[in-house]
């Protein structure tokens, strides 16, 4: 007989027993359709094939070895790294799930039981990601091995450490941004249109579609302030562009340290916003029924 995950009333994250329980649930869920999942993950790399041909064609006609500071190989490596960064920062179903739990009333069990809702969501998401990478590691390794010639030489230890730090922070940032969005369900109930706007912004502004350096050529003011500069002010770049640019050596030295600091600040801001939204939201929340 299994027991429920344990939390204390003021505990933000669950106990070890809570973690292992949620992890085992996530593992069972993923392994139920492992073949489908494995093939599905491999299929997700197919667009990379077309990106290789597209950028080869663009470079052949452009008559230049670099575009916005990126060679053809850099572009391919960038898209592969983007897939990895997005696998950390994307939170499918998180915002929608929170809003749905508010709408259908199931959120109330987290309010009356000694369970911290945000902590529970975080634990479940960590478990989900651990299982995801456990299974997706093989397809990822295969694709990175096949495309190894597109990557520059392995960066130094500092860059690798910085890269790993950006990935962890991109996970936290993605989680808190989406969770905050979901918490708006306490006010609006239906947030699907807001989620769509967020996804659109996320896809375009995070660097998922192309390296944000390409926007540096679009000047917004006469003084040379560019669209790329504007993107640097937003948190979205840290969920895709920033980790990739770090690995490819596009951001180094003081810029790298400053970027990591700003990313950490964004994580704190998003975490505080999420917590405030939850506290304010639960204060105005009302539910009835069994």
């Amino acid at each position: 007989m299994s027991t429920a995950p344990t939390f204390s009333r003021h505990q933000f994250l669950p106990s070890w027993h809570g973690w292992t329980t949620m992890l085992s649930i996530s593992v069972a869920d993923r392994l139920a359709h492992r073949g489908d999942f494995f093939v599905g993950t491999l299929f997700r790399f197919l667009p990379i094939v077309t990106q290789i041909f597209l950028w080869t064609a663009v470079f052949s006609a452009a008559g230049t070895s670099t575009i916005a500071g990126y060679s053809r190989n850099d572009f391919v490596a960038y898209y592969l790294l983007t897939m990895m960064a997005r696998s950390f920062s994307s939170m499918p179903g998180l915002a929608g799930g929170i809003a749905r739990s508010v709408r259908d009333g199931s959120v109330k069990k987290y309010l009356v039981q000694p369970v911290d809702y945000v902590g529970f969501l975080m634990a479940a998401r960590v478990a989900h990601k651990l299982v995801y990478f456990g299974i997706a590691a093989a397809p990822f390794a295969l694709m990175f091995f096949l495309c190894r010639s597109y990557f520059p030489p392995l960066p130094d230890a500092t860059t690798i450490m910085a890269f790993l730090a950006t990935l962890v922070m991109s996970f936290l940032l993605g989680f808190f941004l989406e969770a905050t969005l979901g918490m708006l369900g306490f006010w609006f109930l239906e947030v699907s249109s807001l989620i769509f706007v967020y996804m659109l912004a996320q896809y375009l502004l995070s660097g998922h579609m192309f390296p944000l350096d390409m926007l540096n050529s679009i000047a917004l003011t006469d003084s040379g302030y560019s669209l790329g500069d504007l993107m640097q002010l937003l948190p979205f770049q840290y969920t895709a562009y920033f980790p990739c640019a770090v690995w490819l050596g596009k951001i180094q030295g003081p810029d790298l340290a400053f970027g990591l600091l700003v990313e950490a600040v964004w994580v704190v801001i998003a975490a505080v916003a999420c917590r405030i939204a939850f506290l304010r939201g639960t204060r105005r929340y009302s539910a009835y029924g069994g």
Binding site: L54, A57, V58, S60, A61, A68, M214
Partner: peptide, 13 residues
């Protein structure tokens, strides 16, 4: 954006 960096996709295509 791509066409702001190149005039053609695929040389001579």
């Amino acid at each position: 954006l791509v066409f702001s960096y190149t005039s053609e996709i695929g040389q001579g295509s």
